[in-house]
Design a protein around this nucleic acid. Sequence first.
DNA 1: ACGATGATGAAC
DNA 2: TTCATCATCGTA
Length: 203
Amino acid sequence: MILKQKFFNRPTLKVAEDLLGKFLVRKIGNRERALMITEVEAYDGPHDKASHAHKGRTKRAEVMFGEAGRWYVYLVYGMHYMLNIVTGPKNYPAAILIRGAIRCSQGRSLTWSRSVLDQVKGPGKLTKFLKIDKKFNGKIAESPSPRACGASVSRRKTGLWLEDRGIKINKENIKRTPRIGVNYAGKIWANKPYRFFLTIFDK
DNA sequence: ACGATGATGAAC
DNA sequence: TTCATCATCGTA
């Protein structure tokens, strides 16, 4: 089931937690790559000093003020693209950074490899692996499949979206810590436990 | 521990 | 128009 705006238009911390175990799906031509999300960080509201939205409606952060369910993609350190999904109501700036995921070893039933080789760990490595760049910034997270309607539906060849594939995550397998690399945000905001990850896949 | 590498926002 | 800063990563 593809996650729609309704899923993202909820309190950001809740969405962040719920994104663990969901699938990030990237389609390029007829290739489709799906990763299960194992690590995220929330950037929540105009007062969050670690958030780009803290400086107001700048050109870069504008997407965060928009409707939920759109991608927010930007470049850091001159070389890494960060992938975020916008959450919460319009005019409330919030987004979730997708930091880590894992590849499914497709067996007869669902089995998950815990091998480091299957870990896609780190937000920069994740976007590189899935070939995600600024082109997705501001785009709605949706499947490229044509909608079931009229003749003039143009088939988009690529896409990036999120899916619920029925994995149930046990709450005891979720851990929270402060976010990575946001020490500039001051004690209060740098220490907020806004990073969520699945303990069963390391760390 | 540190350099790569370029967009961003703020100051001037 | 400059300048410092950065939601990172790979190599040392």
